[in-house]
Design a protein around this nucleic acid. Structure first.
Length: 573
DNA sequence: GCCGTTTTCGGCCCGACTGTTTTCAGTCG
């Protein structure tokens, strides 16, 4: 049993306990342990009992449940809870703004046990009859259900990539397999992934597919042919595996990378040149032997085109640009010299500044900015003025001991509900980097929210606007804001907008990034907002979004040298 | 249910926001 599966059981136990109204600290204990287990380096199945017991947050009771899960694949306590609580309520909990207490009230007063029943009750205006709930709650529930339904079945790219890589690594290790790649929307770095596509080159497709369906991540096989498999993994994500001969690999990889629209345009182009493109190769009209295709470059070359990177293959102007020779030279992870939005132990991060520096240097970075939370965000350990000054003195001291690396003294300052910043100008003027962002008052009107952001952008000390729309993928919509006005103001006051690289956010998204950079000439910072050193790797997803937004190195400020960066930040205020 | 030089019970991230109230409960981060 995979660590994540154990964590999953614990999360569900936590939800069930909350609905049951047990000791409120119990679910917290299960969640905390679940989070730790999910991130644990070694598989728990490889650990001895006392090693499991030594995991922080795992006591005698949870250790016993882990052992039981590893041995039997089940946990009696979990099963018992599932019998006591209607399971549909777990789905109901996924509706934003609706927690365990409300779920319980809905169950006890209206007998609601599923999302469908909840929707019917909301439409029949029964929700507003309950104590503490009114028409707005009812509307929010309907809106939330709508959001869940449109996103259902799809996984954020972060999850899909992790699952896909895991399977790809397994396949790559098989002696029968010569090549393997993620394809489809995961390779194109779309933000939500419907199914994971894997393309494999092998002379022995039957053996490969036969092993694949036995992989522990595979929960259910919906189709199993000689050279392809459709399966559902333990996270409920569909995976499509295609095995082709080594000669057909590149054409197949290209075909299953898509998008469909991009491929259709290529087929039209091929037709004009007397060629046909299939997933098996590029064929001159009337012949059944493919032109030699030993890379995706070869395939584009056959059509008289330069190579088009996967992130651009959406038929959104890339074919025209390729024909004109004006394709962008996309920014890449290797171009990145530093991360400008990071949290340390001083607020709600888990690493010391020294640990972050070490991890950043390992990635080849030349600088980072430590940008902990400001005082209003008390729950995240936001820094009071004196603490912030203390941190900056600490960083100064640290910098004195560092060669070829620089820690910038920064802050992620909250934009308060009325548009003021959480610190005064005097304090902000002493920072190397000021990131402004919104963590409260998400439901203000479009006018208020826009005004609030413009007021922050006007502040001469602000350098970067972080996660500008506040959306959380599949969980929370962007807040109401007039982005055009934000872009205009950012251009006017010379501010940088962020691509928050956390795969839960990816904010700005690719479409907005492309508009901001191309229509408004704005510079972008791709930042991970990491609270843990392992999350520095999220840069990959941020750069994916930047590439989907057609950004080049010159558009992204954290590809610049420290000196260039200083000029960008220094010319303000 | 976990944790502890506050050792075996009593804490456990805590304040803002929202919608419903008319002083507060529930949710979120």
């Amino acid at each position: 049993m995979h660590n994540v599966e154990i964590a999953w059981v614990f999360y569900e136990i936590a939800d069930l306990l909350e609905i049951k109204e047990d000791n409120p600290f119990k679910p917290r204990a299960y969640r905390k342990a679940g989070r730790t287990i999910a991130k644990w380096d070694q598989p728990l199945s490889a650990l001895k009992e006392d090693e499991i017991r030594a995991i922080p947050g795992v006591g005698a009771a949870l250790a016993a449940k882990i052992t039981e899960l590893l041995k039997t694949g089940k946990c009696e306590y979990h099963q018992k809870l599932r019998e006591e609580v209607p399971l549909g309520l777990l789905e109901v909990l996924a509706i934003p703004g609706l927690g365990a207490k409300t779920a319980r009230t809905l169950y006890r007063k209206l007998g609601i046990t599923t999302i469908d029943e909840l929707e019917a009750a909301a439409k029949a205006r029964k929700i507003r009859t309950l104590p503490g709930m009114g028409n707005k709650t009812e509307f929010a529930i309907l809106h939330g259900i709508d959001m869940l339904r449109t996103g259902s079945g799809a996984a954020p790219v972060g999850v899909a990539t992790a699952v896909g890589r895991n399977l790809a690594e397994f396949l790559a290790a098989l002696p029968e397999v010569t090549q393997v790649s993620l394809a489809g929307s995961t390779r194109r770095m779309k933000e939500m992934i419907g199914d994971i596509d894997l393309v494999v080159a092998s002379e022995k497709p039957v053996e490969v597919t036969g092993l694949f369906v036995k992989h522990p991540s595979v929960k259910e096989v919906s189709a199993h042919g000689e050279n392809q498999v459709k399966a559902i993994t333990w996270l409920g994500i569909q995976v499509d595996l295609l095995v082709v001969g080594p000669q057909e690999y590149w054409a197949a990889l290209h075909h299953f990378t898509g998008s469909k629209e991009h491929n259709q345009r290529l087929q039209e182009l091929a037709g004009e040149r007397g060629l046909k493109i299939y997933e098996y190769g590029v064929f001159p009209e009337g012949q059944d032997e493919s032109l030699p295709v030993n890379s995706e470059e070869d395939l584009y070359l056959a059509l008289g085109l330069p190579y088009i990177p996967p992130e651009l293959r959406e038929d959104e102007g890339e074919i025209e640009a390729a024909l004109e020779g004006t394709l962008p030279d996309l920014v890449s992870v290797e171009d990145i010299r530093g991360d400008l939005h990071l949290h340390s132990k001083w607020s709600d991060g888990v690493a010391t500044i020294e640990e972050i520096v070490a991890a950043a240097r390992q990635r080849g970075y030349e600088y980072i900015a430590i940008t902990d939370h400001s005082k209003s965000l008390a729950i995240a350990g936001g820094l009071k003025e004196e603490r912030l000054m203390e941190q900056h003195r600490y960083i100064d001291e640290l910098n004195r001991g560092l060669e070829d690396f620089r820690v910038l003294r920064g802050i992620e300052v909250d934009i308060l509900s009325d548009g003021r910043l959480d610190y005064g100008d005097e304090l902000l003027s002493g920072m190397d980097v000021v990131i402004a962002s919104i963590h409260s008052g998400f439901r203000q009107s479009r006018e208020e929210m826009t005004k609030r952001m413009l007021s922050a952008l006007k502040n001469p000390h602000v350098n970067i606007l972080a996660h500008p729309t506040g959306r959380m993928l599949g969980r929370r919509d962007a807040y109401e804001v007039d982005l055009e006005k934000v872009f205009e103001a950012a251009a006017k006051y010379d501010k940088v907008l962020e691509i928050n690289a956390s795969p839960d956010r990816l904010d700005l998204n690719a479409e907005n990034v492309r508009r901001a950079a191309k229509d408004y000439g704005l510079k972008i910072a791709v930042n991970t907002d990491a609270h843990h050193i392992s999350k520095l790797e999220d840069m990959y997803f941020g750069i994916g979004t930047a590439r989907r937004g057609w950004l080049e190195k010159k558009d992204v400020i954290n590809t610049f040298t420290l000196e260039e960066l200083g000029r960008i930040f220094g010319k303000r205020g």
